[in-house]
């Protein structure tokens, strides 16, 4: 680079550096933008409101309807309640390699969960049904801890997601699938 003898030349070096910074920033924009476009990636942003006070009376989040259910057309939907200090159900079987839609809400305070080793992650805000759509690639058990402070029992609030290989996947008569945490 030419030696600097006056302010214009100095500012030229700054300008050149600014161009390199613009280049680097453009790489970030491009990778995020293109991969989000091509693979339809975006943070879970399904906006659906529900009255938190009457969640316990709702049909969709009734105790019998919670957990994994496979619809007649093969779509896998998991319905979860995040309440003070437990996920209901605590053992959640999901098929490997198939798209899964997780619908979760809270009747009381803010919770949140992540499924370790996967991209499934969402906040659970009372008043909204959060929906996370992902595909579980690796079979096996994954820890699903609550990751947002929800009160004094927050540390003990976790569930288990059991990714079942396609061969061993089976549901009962009305499409429900369950698993037992102790086994």
């Amino acid at each position: 680079m030419a030696p600097i003898t006056n302010e214009q030349e100095l500012q030229k070096t700054e300008f050149r550096w600014a161009m390199i910074v613009t280049g680097a920033v453009t790489v970030l924009f491009a990778v995020i933008g293109i991969s989000s476009f091509v693979m339809a990636l975006h943070p879970p942003s399904h906006v659906e409101s529900i009255d938190p006070a009457t969640v316990s009376q709702s049909k969709e989040f009734a105790e019998s309807n919670l957990g994994t259910s496979v619809d007649p057309d093969g779509a896998v939907t998991v319905r979860i309640i995040a309440t003070q200090f437990a996920f209901v159900p605590r053992c959640i079987p999901v098929p490997q390699g198939k798209p899964v839609t997780i619908r979760v809400t809270s009747p009381d305070v803010i919770h949140g969960f992540l499924i370790a080793g996967t991209n499934a992650n969402t906040m659970v805000v009372p008043g909204y049904v959060a929906e996370v759509r992902t595909v579980f690639g690796t079979a096996g058990d994954h820890l699903m801890p609550c990751h947002e402070f929800c009160g004094l029992g927050h540390s003990e609030m976790w569930a288990l997601v059991r990714v079942v290989p396609q061969a061993q996947w089976q549901t009962d008569a009305d499409g429900k699938a369950r698993c037992d945490i102790s086994r």
Binding site: V21, F29, P43
Partner: peptide, 28 residues
């Protein structure tokens, strides 16, 4: 609030784009 269920993807994307710009002064 990326993981929050009370906002759509639109404004999350706009604020992500502006967040990338906030790295510029640090890199300068």
């Amino acid at each position: 609030l990326f993981m929050d269920p009370e906002h759509g993807t639109g404004f999350k994307f706009l604020q992500m784009m502006l967040t990338v710009l906030v790295t510029v002064p640090t890199l300068l």
